[in-house]
Nucleic acid binder design. Structure first.
Lengths: 204, 204
DNA sequence: TGGACCATGTACCAATTGGTACACTCCCGC
DNA sequence: GCGGGAGTGTACCAATTGGTACATGGTCCA
């Protein structure tokens, strides 16, 4: 025997870690894959082939395609939220600068796949696909609270703060869709600048 | 013989008309169906069963599923544009009133299916689905020109008119997505009012 | 050493898919 | 009346799907 009991337990824990780890790595690879190729015609076989496991393993780790998709959506959501938290750390800047920073992050070409996936998942969820529907809950509210808080901090009254936050979120998303569809970076940026002028006033 | 030559020709023309008519009615029924059920897991068989023909007939009239989908997308696009033209006829009203009118039309619950389909098709197109990709071309530009024209007519200089038009379009779409996701009509309407205040000034 | 367990792969299944072959029916021109 | 062509339905096809059964191989504990 090469293990004491303690070491055995550690090993078991490690195994479980590895298991969890493998699972997590699978999800991560899966998200990467759908970020690039979409979820529209995702099949367990193709996904498995792409990330180096048999489709049997995907079933084994996730139970069913639907559960895997749910996990993919959840993880992708988490990545989206990471953007938000990055924004949060930048407190201290003028709101308009924070907005510009967020905008620049969101429109980073490297994130295009993620943004496309976002709209694709929205489309799925709007159709009632069970594995995506829960995204709809957080789609607005998750972003609304921090944005509204920022607005309140900037001096807006609560009611107007919520409306302004909602407006800002919608505008960003609309322009993001425009950018993805047209690729006209300059045109969309100009519209964004126009919005910032209207939103924060011409002088800031 | 029950037909003169002229009547025969008329008949043939009528047949062709009927053919075209049947085809058109099939497309229409198909659009109605996908408006309600989405295109994500559309199958010729289910569609056929839903609109009362065999999937064989769909192939016969449209050649392939892809071509049928292309036609569906095109027709759905045409319906979208009908909204725009309805708006166009309302000239003479103050811009802010036109905007409110358009907004009320777009958010009519009876159009929810159509709007959902819009976002769903966007998702497809953003993934490069060939039958939907051409939507992307008109996605912004089709709406931009009339909107920018209205802005110019209202006294904006050309450059700012384009940016403002683009911004308005994006905001409407973003808020529409918000509405579809949350169903929070009041909240979204408040955001829209906030936008109109910023966009047209508080006094109009 | 042996046995239990777990991860993994192979082979398979029934269902569904888009598309095709062929037969049938109905109507027009002769 | 009748031959032919167009519209339509039935039966079928190969491919792909998600999911399962079972064999295999390895690793740990007694």
């Amino acid at each position: 025997m090469t293990h004491t009991d303690a070491a055995g337990e550690q090993d078991r824990a490690q195994d479980q870690d590895q298991d969890q780890d493998r699972r997590a790595r699978l999800v991560d690879a899966a998200v990467d894959h759908v970020t690039e190729h979409g979820i529209a015609d995702l099949s367990l076989r193709r996904l498995g082939a792409a990330i180096g496991v048999s489709h049997r393993m995907l079933i084994h780790y996730f139970g069913s395609k639907e559960q895997l998709l749910a996990e993919i959506v959840r993880t992708s959501e988490r990545r989206q939220r990471a953007l938000l938290s990055r924004l949060h750390e930048e407190s201290g800047l003028a709101p308009t600068e924070v907005a510009r920073l967020l905008w620049r992050q969101l429109t980073d070409p490297r994130l295009a796949g993620q943004e496309r996936l976002f709209f694709e998942i929205c489309g799925y969820a709007l159709r009632g696909r069970p594995e995506a529907v829960r995204v709809l809950d957080g789609l607005v509210s998750d972003w609304l609270e921090p944005l509204a808080a920022a607005e309140t901090a900037a001096g807006a009254d609560p009611a107007s703060a919520r409306a302004r936050a909602r407006l800002g979120l919608a505008t960003v998303r609309g322009l993001l869709l425009d950018l993805l569809a047209t690729g006209d970076r300059a045109g969309v940026d100009a519209a964004m600048e126009e919005f910032l002028r209207l939103y924060y006033g011409p002088d800031r």
